[in-house]
Design a protein around this nucleic acid. Structure first.
Length: 181
DNA sequence: TTCCTGATGC
DNA sequence: GCATCGGGAA
């Protein structure tokens, strides 16, 4: 939830302190409101603070203080939708699903020569292609690899085509090369 | 300026 | 379908 529209580098230190200060949903729920606020303030998007409080309430009231393990239950939680639910299923539970954030959607759109647009995440064609790419036996590594590729190489601005491991079969790289020559 | 491992309300 | 939220880095 901290990673929504927020860089991993910015989240990392906040996350470490947060997990230390509130080691369980119950302790987050019982935490002082000002304490929670100051913990999350460095991330911006301050309406998320109220969401964390509501999430703690949801977890304690509806799930006995435990994070649920099915997609249907996860998306019932305040602040949890497709992305967060899939991320929990993959990174916490190791289930074979494709995590699709704005960046992964961009990578897929570029690679297959589709039009890049703001709502590519919800594009049925993009989601279908993502499911096809998924290495089901190594879902965690696959998804980390996609996120890292998107963040480090296939960036929104100035993508590093010459460093990209997919450059030989990528529609966008072929296009960029044609334009350059 | 733009963008970052989006979800929500309208 | 679309604006909105936000600090931080490039």
């Amino acid at each position: 939830m901290m990673l929504r529209r927020t860089r991993a580098k910015q989240v990392a230190p906040v996350y470490e302190l947060f997990i230390r200060d509130y080691p369980s949903p119950d302790e987050m729920y019982r935490a002082d409101s000002n304490s929670l606020r100051s913990s999350l303030k460095p991330l911006g998007l301050n309406w998320r603070i109220a969401q964390f409080e509501a999430l703690g309430r949801d977890l304690v009231r509806d799930f006995g203080g435990h994070v649920p393990t099915t997609r249907e239950e996860l998306v019932q939680l305040t602040g949890v939708s497709d992305y967060v639910a899939d991320a929990v299923l993959v990174f916490a539970l190791g289930q074979p699903r494709a995590v699709i954030d704005a960046n992964v959607a961009r990578v897929i759109a570029r690679y297959f020569g589709l039009r890049e647009h703001a709502e590519a995440r919800r594009d049925g064609q993009v989601r279908e292609l993502a499911d096809g790419l998924l290495d089901r036996a190594h879902a965690r590594d696959y998804n980390f690899a996609m996120l890292d590729l998107a963040a480090l190489v296939c960036t929104a601005r100035n993508p590093k085509h010459d460093l990209c491991p997919l450059r030989r079969t990528c529609a966008k790289a072929a296009n960029a090369k044609a334009v350059a020559s």
